[in-house]
């Protein structure tokens, strides 16, 4: 399966693409344009709801002071660590429970129970258990990321066609080979979907995490601004979240396209 070369199959359809590629940006541009128009004409009171230009200027001022880059970098660090730790645990558990019935019976119910606990309610526990330092924030993100990765990994592995596994067995593949050549590639689309979802959860959990005794990060910037009704910064933070979300989604999507080349090649042939 993994030996199929996809390169030849994808032949580019050149010119026609251009319009379609602009299409996703029509809505955001229209919204921002309309918002600016409403602000300039005085339809929106600038004190309660600042214009996009004011938000942009606020961003520039914060960037010049150095706080914006610093906070983004710090948030990115926390998010990445959380993703790595939570993602690994979720993946490992997912694989384990996907392959072993004993382990699944033992742990799946507990994990499903833990999954529905709102992250916000965990904050006091996290403070008591881990304190208020970086580990506390990173572990909250890890907890958030763990579940989507776990569920999708488990689901991906469980829904691999049993006939394929049986075929592998009859071909005399070892258990390890069956896993790496049949189960894992078969589950990969679902796993990557889990990753994509996890990237979204990662950012939302981080905001919650960054309200714990924090003096840095975008979540801190947002809550701090909220305390003093600094609408420009509040909206700036929202925009940054949206952009970071889109960025991580872009990465996940490209990862999907690259890792699942064989699937696209197949689709292109049909």
């Amino acid at each position: 399966m993994e030996n199929v070369s996809p390169v030849a199959a994808v032949t580019p359809k050149k010119k026609k693409m251009n319009w379609n590629r602009l299409l996703p940006w029509v809505l955001p541009v229209l919204i921002i344009g309309g918002w600016q128009l409403a602000s300039s004409t005085g339809f929106l009171a600038s004190k309660t709801f600042p214009s996009p230009v004011a938000v942009f200027q606020d961003g520039v001022a914060l960037a010049q002071a150095g706080t914006l880059q610093r906070n983004i970098a710090i948030s990115l660090y926390r998010a990445t660590m959380g993703l790595l730790i939570g993602g690994s645990i979720g993946f490992a558990l997912g694989v384990l429970n996907g392959v072993s019935k004993l382990s699944r019976n033992l742990t799946d119910t507990s994990i499903q129970m833990l999954r529905t606990i709102p992250h916000l309610s965990l904050i006091p526990l996290v403070i008591l258990a881990i304190g208020i330092g970086e580990p506390a924030k990173i572990s909250l993100v890890s907890i958030g990321v763990l579940f989507p990765v776990y569920i999708n990994t488990l689901h991906g592995i469980r829904s691999v066609d049993p006939n394929l596994v049986e075929m592998g067995t009859s071909y005399g593949l070892s258990k390890w080979e069956i896993f790496t050549k049949i189960i894992f590639p078969g589950a990969l689309p679902t796993i990557l979907m889990g990753l994509r979802y996890a990237l979204g959860v990662m950012w939302t959990t981080l905001i919650v995490a960054e309200t714990i005794a924090s003096d840095s990060g975008i979540g801190y910037m947002a809550t701090n601004a909220e305390d003093f009704m600094d609408m420009e910064t509040i909206i700036l933070c929202i925009v940054i979240y949206a952009l970071l979300g889109k960025l991580s989604d872009l990465i996940a999507k490209n990862l999907e396209i690259l890792a699942l080349g064989w699937r696209q090649a197949k689709e292109a042939q049909q």
Partner: peptide, 16 residues
Amino acid sequence: FLLAWVAVAIYGYHEI
């Protein structure tokens, strides 16, 4: 992209 991501995250680590 990933390289830039990691670089920025490392910068954030040093900031903390």
